[in-house]
Amino acid sequence: MKLLYFAWLRARVGCAEEEVALPPQVRDVAGLLDWLRGRSDRHAEALRSLGLIRVAVNQDYVGPAHPVREGDEVALFPPVTGG
């Protein structure tokens, strides 16, 4: 699975994207965020406040119960500030 990070999430995690092999117990967005927090101290710190994180799966906004699968493109980022 391809993970993308934007804005301060990228800065805190320390990379713009990473390829991860999804463990079988991770089935949805909430599970993915939980699992990611265990990957490193940087991930744990970056993903601490879930209220500040938006998630897109295959370029559509989704909620915590949305399923994730191997092969998905999952982007994590703060609330958007364009315009």
Binding site: F6, A7, W8, A56, Y61, A75, F77, P78, P79, V80, T81, G82, G83
Partner: peptide, 22 residues
């Protein structure tokens, strides 16, 4: 556009670089 398009702004200010909050 402001709430749905995935853009982010970072300001270079007199007190340093910081991300603009929604």
């Amino acid at each position: 556009l402001k709430t749905d398009a995935p853009f982010w702004k970072s300001e270079t200010t007199s007190v340093g670089e910081r991300w603009v909050e929604a």
